[in-house]
């Protein structure tokens, strides 16, 4: 059974197809409005999340499907001590596809190994969040028209920021990209992410000074310092305001910079930047829904749950 746990489970060819489907949905949403009729998506969210769950649910509704929802660990069987493996087996009896978020790293992998329906990893702790990366990729594609030869700055919490890890993995597969990793010392990217860059000889630089590098960037991917990833409140308070993007700082950036953020933001991007044409984060939210629609279609089709898919119009 095909699932999506890690963005690298998808080949670059498959990513291209997903982007084509998403573009087709954007161009002609009517064509897709009934494709998943009578099909059910189970959203199992064992960790607080509003936007990702809503995005999945909106995606399924826009495909004409239905949604079964578990929205907190406290109100579910997990609170009674049920294992992820058993939950996955049980939900496989009710739904056609699962989107799961869980605070433990590797939880979606365990669910996929035990479910008899496709599982989409909607975030496993600080580890991976591949559908956010799908949203990011569609945004980069629509803003830049390419995945190659880009200087990508990632700023903020690069240690626990799973969206950052997934985006680095995904963009490492295209040629000519360069990464600028901007974070305080305590929130640097983990070694396994850096080892991917080193293995592939991908140029990257690490710095703690955003202003030193902002003028070089094609993309600036901002992240929030996440309170829920810290064991210690003191560390969180010390680091939370490390980087705040303001209109003043944006003056040093290029005219064609794209500012991205997986959201929710707290204060790391000043609200005044929302009207700047370089701000892409709300477009990213919308793109996320379209990519989740494309992904649900792909996985349900591969599982044999959907017999046909609408033909994509050729642009």
């Amino acid at each position: 059974m095909r699932s999506l746990i890690d963005i690298l489970d998808l080949s670059t060819e498959e990513l291209r197809e997903l982007i084509e489907t998403a573009e087709d949905i954007i161009a002609d949403p009517e064509k897709y409005a009934e494709v998943c009729r009578h099909k059910k998506l189970a959203t199992l969210f064992f960790e607080p999340s509003t936007r990702t769950r809503l995005s999945f649910e909106a995606a399924m509704y826009e495909l004409g499907g239905n949604v079964l929802s578990v929205s907190s660990a406290n109100s579910s069987s997990a609170a009674k001590g049920e294992s992820v493996a058993d939950t996955a087996k049980t939900v496989s009896c009710y739904a056609d596809i699962i989107a799961m978020r869980h605070p433990k790293e590797g939880a979606a992998f365990v669910a996929a190994a035990n479910a008899s329906i496709p599982v989409i990893n909607a975030g496993d702790g600080g580890h991976l969040h591949p559908t956010q990366t799908l949203a990011d990729l569609l945004t980069i594609w629509r803003e830049k028209g390419r995945f190659t030869d880009l200087t990508i700055g990632l700023c903020g919490d690069l240690k626990f920021g799973r969206t950052v890890h997934s985006l680095i993995s995904a963009m490492s597969r295209y040629e000519g990209n360069r990464f600028v990793l901007i974070s305080p010392e305590e929130l640097k990217v983990p070694s396994y992410v850096k080892s991917v860059l080193k293995e592939k000889n991908i140029p990257y630089e690490q710095t703690s000074d955003l202003m030193e590098v902002i003028g070089d960037l094609d993309i600036l991917y901002m992240t929030r310092v996440q309170r829920e990833r810290f064991f210690n409140e003191e560390d969180y308070l010390r680091l939370k305001d490390s980087y705040i993007l303001t209109p003043d700082k944006m003056r040093s950036a290029r005219e064609d910079l794209s500012v991205m953020h997986p959201l929710p933001r707290v204060n790391e991007i000043s609200v005044a930047i929302d009207d700047d044409p370089r701000a892409c984060y709300f477009k990213q939210v919308k793109n996320g829904k379209y990519m989740r629609m494309a992904l649900i279609l792909k996985l349900l089709y591969e599982a044999g749950t959907l017999k046909t898919l609408p033909e994509r119009s050729r642009a």
Partner: peptide
């Protein structure tokens, strides 16, 4: 934070990721 720290009866599996340096990674959380 690894799922293997809480999930009952989950086998602890490590996969070789670098033979030369003999680095293993947890298959769940890497």
């Amino acid at each position: 934070r690894c799922i293997s720290s809480t999930e009952q009866e989950l086998p602890q599996i490590f996969a070789l990721s670098d033979r030369e340096k003999r680095i293993y990674r947890c298959i769940y959380c890497e």
